[in-house]
Design a protein around this nucleic acid. Structure first.
Length: 592
RNA sequence: GUGCCCGUAGCUCAAUUGGAUAGAGCACCAGCCUUCUAAGCUGGGGGUUACAGGUUCGAUCCCUGUCGGGCACGCCA
């Protein structure tokens, strides 16, 4: 590849790496793998260091037993010619600094303009089937701001993975089979009884939120007193005296659920199904308004209904990975690196959550996904070993499952940590956050930090419609380009892909060009590292280069060639801003 | 107590996974609107990368220890 191809978008980083690879191959002593390290080509931080830099000479210093600078000289002598290469320098301890020609940067613009919405995309993953499961919050109440982070992270990552060529399936695992759902059904029914004038003490450890009362009202409106039953036996076995006594233990709550099931009989299923449908619908709607959509809503209950949980446990049995103890069935997860063995079937015959989760993960692989990503809250980190262990026991490759741990967001209001608990009802919902700060600010704010880092979510800051909100900075750059274009009489944007950009030679212009060239690498890195924040940081830098340029130069100048060249540059910038914001689920407004 | 994660400017966070003089935003100080949007730009101060050792050409990153913070250690989900 000694000359630029006319059709395919050039990848300067990869191109320079190839040049050095070739140069390294001429050093005849480099014939074993250990002495020929992979080429690390990186962008420089300082302009004086050129555009790309390579540490190959330093890496070879030890195996070749030579001075790095001497090796660098040998590599440079053996470097093939390239039309992209302006010059090469050796600097510091032995860095090889490569400078792109201005022409290479200028001629890149048509690639951006012609690729349009697809600029930044690649086919690197070649259609590999990948599934990303995220949010998966229990449908027992509104999503709160903690879930919001998982939603923003997962949705952005899914977009990024799709951009580099993965065939992505976005999935929400619905925990519709467990005790929490029973507690919600009970809570709703008790509120419903209250509405109908029947006083029953409301357990302190039931769901306290107002949305429960709303659901009770809905049932009342639709069915009047249809679900009012004789409740004399409701407090049976709770070991409390008066009807206004306090209920607050798990044992009491479970007894209450059992009593409710007995009293309601077949009507219990209606209540249970009603609250599930209601909460799931609310959740789906909430996420949709947050710009987060799923391809699949996978029901945990379906795993039981289809017998997959029992089948999976039998499979583990067949692999001799189970044993009985204390009346329960245990999975020998210590055999696969877990700290202790885990119960899959309880003494009372019920399967544990872990059992259905094994079935779920096995099912993921049986659906043909070549790669599976779980986005989990960081409090689940202790859960990773047992799930991977179970997959391994079932002859699946645990490497195909990658867990992206997302730290919780800690809320601050007036500089004070805000309490957050679903059951007490003291939490800030995602919906409330969206209404106060807007979808765009919330989405951007969430991915502005590395996901495995704690996020201090300053509500007052996020709510403020000021320039402290970093999303405006990026959006403003986009709106500014739109504004310039609105004042350009010709307004033939398509033509800009054909104009010459050779007049773009100022430092601001060359820096902005280089930033545009960097975009595909940023997407690639974000995909590889599961790091949407890299896109957010990239966009901030791109916007910064643009704003500097905006203040340094006028675009709508009288000289037509220069005007067209500059417009081509800012329209390209507009395109990349839009593409990047799109990956993060943030709008690119035309006016602000 | 054991395991995992974290500790970087006054605050919130980066640092291309071992590279060059550790970078941004906010806050603070000084400038820039008769010109395509000032939600912007330019310049400035601010650091023993918690601490102490070690590994090597080179450490915020890897190893050991100490201190400090978070999470997890259920027949819950």
């Amino acid at each position: 590849m000694n000359s630029p191809e006319q059709t395919k978008q050039p990848n300067f980083k990869a191109h320079f790496a190839e040049l050095l690879q070739h140069a390294a191959s001429t050093l005849t002593t480099l014939d074993t793998p250990e002495t020929s390290p992979r080429i690390e080509m990186s962008r420089t931080k300082q302009a004086s260091h050129g555009d790309y830099s390579c540490n190959l000479a330093m890496q070879l210093a030890k195996p070749l037993r030579k001075n790095p600078r001497e090796i660098a000289n040998m590599l440079i002598d053996a470097l093939p010619d390239s039309l992209y290469l302006e010059k090469v320098e050796i600097a510091g301890a032995g860095f090889i600094n490569l400078f792109l020609t201005n022409a290479a940067k200028q001629n890149f613009l048509p690639y951006v303009l012609k690729s349009g919405d697809k600029f930044g995309n690649s086919d690197h993953a070649q259609g590999t089937k990948i599934q990303i499961e995220f949010v998966s919050a229990n449908p027992t109440g509104p999503l709160h701001v903690g879930h919001g982070r998982g939603a923003a992270f997962g949705a952005s990552l899914a977009n990024i993975l799709a951009a580099v060529g993965f065939c992505v399936t976005r999935e929400y695992y619905v925990n519709d089979a467990g005790r929490q759902m029973d507690i919600l059904a009970l809570s709703t029914w008790l509120r419903y009884l209250e509405l109908n004038g029947i006083h029953v003490p409301f357990p302190e450890n039931a769901y306290q939120g107002d949305y429960v009362k709303v659901m009770a009202q809905l049932i009342q409106q639709a069915h009047a007193t249809r679900y009012v039953h004789q409740v004399d036996l409701l407090l049976e076995g709770l070991d409390i005296a008066a009807s206004d006594a306090v209920i607050n233990t798990d044992v009491q709550l479970d007894q209450l659920i059992a009593n409710a099931k007995t009293i309601l009989g077949e009507d219990y299923a209606y209540i249970h199904n009603f609250v599930l449908t209601e909460q799931l619908g609310d959740c789906r709607n909430d996420l949709m308004e947050f710009g987060v959509a799923f391809d699949t809503w996978f029901s945990e209950q379906s795993l039981f209904d289809n017998g997959l949980v029992a089948q999976t446990v039998q499979l583990l049995e067949a692999k001799h990975c189970l044993y009985q103890q204390d009346g329960a069935t245990w999975f020998r997860s210590t055999k696969f690196g877990d700290e202790k063995d885990r119960v899959v079937q309880r003494e009372n015959g019920q399967f544990t959550y872990f059992a259905s989760d094994i079935a779920y993960h096995l099912n993921k692989f049986e659906r043909g996904f070549e790669q599976v990503i779980n986005v989990w809250g960081a409090d689940h980190h202790g859960y990773i070993a047992r799930v991977k262990g179970a997959l391994q026991a079932l002859d699946q490759d645990p490497q195909k499952l990658e867990i992206a741990l997302v730290q919780f967001a800690v809320l601050y209001r007036d500089g004070v940590k805000a309490p957050m608990s679903t059951r007490s009802g003291e939490f800030v919902t995602l919906r409330a956050l969206r209404q106060e700060v807007g979808k765009d600010a919330a989405r951007f704010f969430y991915v502005l930090r590395k996901s495995d880092q704690h996020l201090d979510f300053d509500l007052d800051l996020a709510k403020s419609q000021s320039n402290e909100n970093p999303v405006y900075y990026v959006q403003y750059a986009h709106a500014r380009v739109c504004s310039v274009l609105a004042q350009w009489e010709d307004e033939d944007v398509a033509m800009l892909a054909e104009v010459s950009a050779e007049t773009l030679t100022s430092p601001a212009e060359l820096a902005l060009l280089q930033k545009l060239i960097d975009f595909p690498d940023a997407v690639e890195a974000a995909a590889k590292e599961f790091a949407p924040h890299l896109i957010a940081f990239y966009l901030r830098e791109l916007a910064s280069e643009f704003h500097s340029y905006y203040n340094s130069s006028r675009f709508l100048v009288p000289e037509i060639p220069l005007r067209h060249a500059r417009l081509a540059l800012i329209v390209s910038t507009q395109q990349v801003l839009r593409n990047g914001l799109n990956l993060l689920g943030v709008n690119a407004p035309e006016k602000m």
